[in-house]
Design a protein around this nucleic acid. Structure first.
Length: 457
RNA sequence: GUGGUUGUAGUUCAGUUGGUUAGAACGCCUGAUUGUGGUUCAGGAGGUCGUGGGUUCAAAUCCCAUCUUCCACCCCA
């Protein structure tokens, strides 16, 4: 049999111990903050019925769904003509399940299925991997974690404000101080599309305007024009391009421009109210910047939208995003449930922290002391000592085989174990053990109590 | 889905216009040192040159296909 080198699928990654320690640091930080804000945990299955997933992310999104082939004879429901009808038709016949694409849609599904048991407003957080059949590149993976927190069943803008508080708290715990929370409101974008006379073309408008900082004004105009926006509409857009200044200044300018649009005024008020709440919370620096060009792709947002980017990072894409959706559960038959949520992209946050060298030096997760294994008698005594040390919550291990001391010491060095404990014939006789500090090379004969004192210092 | 890019030892990489037995560093193993590590010294193992096909007297090197890596576009965390 030919031996082939094992590989992992494109866009997926293994997380070795050193990486996992850092990931857990991020994950634990996020989880702690979610729970402090009274969000409750939820997990949903990795695979969902395709009917739950399809049509929720736009036509592009459907392309990026991983479909799971029916088990058993997946061809049993097909015949030759199905192939001729094309792959989309065939897919529906041979695949009924798919990997989840995000955590929001499964959450909506959960809310609908459990509406009678849920007390609204319902605040839940969910930290699980999601999968997208995208082509991988910088900051983009096919399997990645999302950390979502959503509230459903309330329109209160305090939720939006609390999201901004949570983002600030998480970032500051992670040591990432230089970031920007861009916010906007879908209603404002709807209003602008209406005001320039292109009612209903909001989606195309959003996609184009979102790229303003990336491709520039000329190219945005070109793209709008290509998408059927009239010359007149595009020139009507000019005043909006001129909006600038601080968040307050931008809002003031927009108030003039949007005075004839009901929906625009509502959207603007939502932004103002959210910022007002932030002041009430007493947040000193909120990192919030109003950004009229922020649109975000997902089709279900209807109110405030937000996106977080790390400044001074080579990663230009967002590390956190979210917004309000008025009717997410509507597609599953539950109308009138408004929700707002956001999601931390752990994998991207990891990349940023790594690049900016912001990870704490030590995580205190490795072995504190290694017990050397001299011979059978020493080993037996070691097991007793291990039990005592572990009762004192000391991370410890014995080298499992009685090999050369050099090799055992080397093991301690490789794992950055700060202490080794030598339990040999002499030590057992004396009832004291040699504790060696691997950094300084010092070693002392100590009794168990003294050893525990040193190790728990 | 579109365009580009990458692949040689466990790892990071050299490898001339195609020409003997494909190299280095680090890592690994053994010994100097049978109860004391990091350092040093001596020695050793380790490769179907991503895979498959083609051109050639001769291919890591040239051509084709395929997979893989990374980057950009579309879109997104």
């Amino acid at each position: 049999m030919k031996i082939e080198k094992p590989t992992i699928p494109k866009g997926t990654r293994d997380f070795g111990p050193d990486i996992m320690l850092r990931r857990q640091f991020i994950l634990n930080t996020i989880r702690t903050v979610f729970e402090k804000f009274a969000y409750q945990p939820l997990e949903t299955p990795a695979i969902e019925n395709l009917s739950v997933l399809t049509g929720k992310y736009g036509s592009e999104g459907d392309q990026l769904l991983y479909k799971v082939l029916n088990s058993g004879d997946f061809l049993s429901k097909t015949d030759g003509s199905d192939i001729e009808k094309g792959y989309k038709h065939l897919t529906s016949k041979i695949s009924e399940k798919g990997l989840r694409y995000d955590l929001t849609v499964p959450f909506a599904r959960y809310v609908v299925m459990n509406q009678h048991a849920i007390t609204f407003p319902f605040k839940r957080y969910q930290i699980q991997p999601v999968w997208r059949a995208d082509r991988p590149q910088k900051g983009r993976y096919r399997e990645f974690y999302q950390c979502d927190a959503d509230v459903v069943g309330t329109n209160s803008l305090v939720c939006e404000a609390e999201i901004i508080l949570m983002i600030n708290e998480v970032m500051s715990h992670l040591g990432l101080m230089d970031f920007t929370i861009n916010i906007n409101n879908r209603k404002i974008l709807t209003a602008i599309t209406d005001l320039i006379g292109e009612h209903g073309k909001e989606a195309a408008f959003c996609v184009a305007i979102d790229k303003l900082d990336k491709i520039g004004r000329e190219n945005v105009i070109k793209e709008l024009s290509n998408n059927g926006f009239s010359q007149n509409a595009i020139s009507n857009l000019n005043p909006f391009f001129e909006i600038s200044g601080t968040t307050e200044e931008k809002i003031t300018q927009l108030e003039t421009h949007l005075k004839n649009s009901e929906v625009g005024k509502i959207g603007l008020n939502e932004v103002k109210q959210t910022i007002e709440y932030l002041k009430d919370f007493g947040l000193e620096k909120d990192h919030v910047e109003f950004d009229l060009t922020l649109a975000r792709g997902l089709s279900y947002y209807t109110g405030i939208i937000l996106e977080v980017k790390a400044n001074n990072s080579s990663l230009k894409s967002s590390i956190t995003g979210g917004g309000r959706y008025d009717n997410l559960t509507g597609v599953f038959g539950l109308e009138g449930v408004s929700g707002v949520g956001f999601s931390f992209g752990v994998d991207r946050i990891y990349d940023v922290l790594e690049e900016l060298n912001l990870f704490p030096k030590e995580f205190d997760a490795s072995t504190k002391v290694l017990l050397l294994n001299f011979d059978a008698v020493s080993f037996k005594e070691s097991l007793k000592v291990l039990g005592v040390l572990r009762k004192s919550n000391i991370k410890c291990e014995v080298y499992p085989e009685s090999v050369k001391i050099k090799k055992q010491m080397n093991y301690a060095n490789k794992k950055d174990v700060p202490f080794v404990l030598m339990i040999g014939e002499n030590e057992i006789k004396e009832g004291k053990y040699q504790l060696k500090n691997m950094d300084t090379g010092d070693q002392k004969m100590l009794n168990l109590k003294e050893i525990i004192d040193v190790l728990t210092m």
